[in-house]
Design a protein around this nucleic acid. Structure first.
Lengths: 235, 235
DNA sequence: ATCCATAACATTGTATACAAAGTACAAAGA
DNA sequence: TCTTTGTACTTTGTATACAATGTTATGGAT
């Protein structure tokens, strides 16, 4: 329970940003669980800083909806409900489709080559056992598309929405049976974008999200069922 | 220059939120101008609080991209360039279209009635001289559509994007020649949604943004031209 | 007169101190 | 036994103090 957080100490960043990154990572990876309280003094001691940087980090997490503030009680890690996840995905489906379309218009030949390589890298990663490596390859691939849109605001928003899902991503990515499909979907997206076929690219992006949605929703329901069973057993 | 900010003192809100709302409002209305520095002690004195709530408010403004942090120099009000505005609108066009589509599926009969009334209210407001009233009626109308989607995350994102534009909105809304067109566009949107015609609604929403984009971009270029002229004159 | 160096100052970054509010637990009374 | 009240403790909200750094101004040397 008391394992230390992985502190991302970029030397020259203000402490508030180090704390922000650390806490965010902890929430996204599930190290800090939904509903868990973030108590300032406790965190300050744990990270070896004062309350001030902790508080400023919490303000940012608050605006990212990763924590919710309870008046005069403090911050706690936001719950992810099935509804909130569907809401996020509904938006992301649209924005990912937009990314794919814009990418068709604006991607450079060099980026197309990178994208192809990223598809291969992802495929290679799924052969190995390191789940973190797989997630990393997936993120890298999607980042190439994002950057090719040349729209920073879009990039920022999609990254943020994607992060909301990382909290489930690690479970999702463990599902080996999905790998073949993911590889295939990436291939379709690559081909649509490299062929600059906007319609096809948008559709492929939507399908990609749809499939993720089914998987993750299934995971949540499974989780919920487990909780209910536990409650019954306690009785 | 030294007029006081309009402090939105909701009595029971923590000071950081009061400060946050106050500063945000000041930035959006142009009271705090792009490039202007936000100095903590100065703001603290002006608002009659200590630096702590000021700093926490700035952290939130930072995440909203309304201010940018310069290391060891502090916060300053973010510039809006033509590029950043185009980026925002590119995203918003897509999300507004999504809103319109979702609304077609999910809006209640009561909300349709509200929407109709909001169209009339907006029309009435354009008859008067109070520009704030016009902006308010416009926001109210769009909020009805937003809320009818039932997607809180979408609501939050679109509101945020819209706010980025309010910084230009007040100039834009002064352009009396646009009123007829705005009224007409609202009417088309209303009819599409009340008829639950997704395709038409999405298209109308996109057109609405397109027209705003032309107007606001024209304003910016006009502004830029003015600045250039001034520089020349100084020489 | 200009350029460099040093000192004073201004401002942010961080830590700590103090105030207020909420919570939990225990003791006393019905 | 249950409820109520009071007290101690925990935790947040706010203010202030201290440290570090960057900037500006001043003075001297060339």
């Amino acid at each position: 329970m008391n394992e230390e957080f992985e502190i991302h100490m970029n030397e020259f960043l203000p402490l508030r940003d180090v704390v922000f990154n650390t806490l965010r990572q902890a929430i996204l990876t599930g190290e800090l669980k939904p509903g868990e309280r973030l108590m300032e003094i406790h965190l300050a001691n744990k990270l070896g800083v004062s309350r001030t940087p902790i508080r400023e980090a919490i303000r940012k997490l608050e605006l990212e909806s990763l924590v919710v503030m309870i008046p005069r009680k403090g911050a706690e890690v936001a719950q992810i409900t099935e509804k909130s996840l569907r809401d996020v995905l509904e938006v992301r489906r649209t924005l990912d489709a937009l990314c794919a379309e814009l990418s068709c218009d604006r991607i450079s030949e060099a980026e197309i080559a990178n994208l192809k390589q990223a598809c291969l890298d992802f495929e290679a990663a799924t052969q190995g056992k390191d789940k973190k490596q797989i997630a990393k390859a997936d993120v890298a691939l999607h980042n190439i598309i994002l950057e090719s849109t040349g729209n920073q605001r879009l990039e920022q928003l999609v990254n943020n929405l994607a992060e909301q899902m990382y909290r489930y991503r690690f479970e999702y990515i463990k599902d080996v049976s999905q790998y073949a499909q993911l590889i295939q979907e990436h291939r379709v997206i690559y081909e649509a974008i490299s062929g600059r076929d906007k319609e096809k690219a948008a559709q492929a992006a939507r399908t990609h999200i749809d499939n993720q949605e089914s998987c993750v929703i299934a995971l949540i329901q499974q989780e919920n069922a487990k909780i209910k069973t536990n409650k019954k057993n306690k009785k």
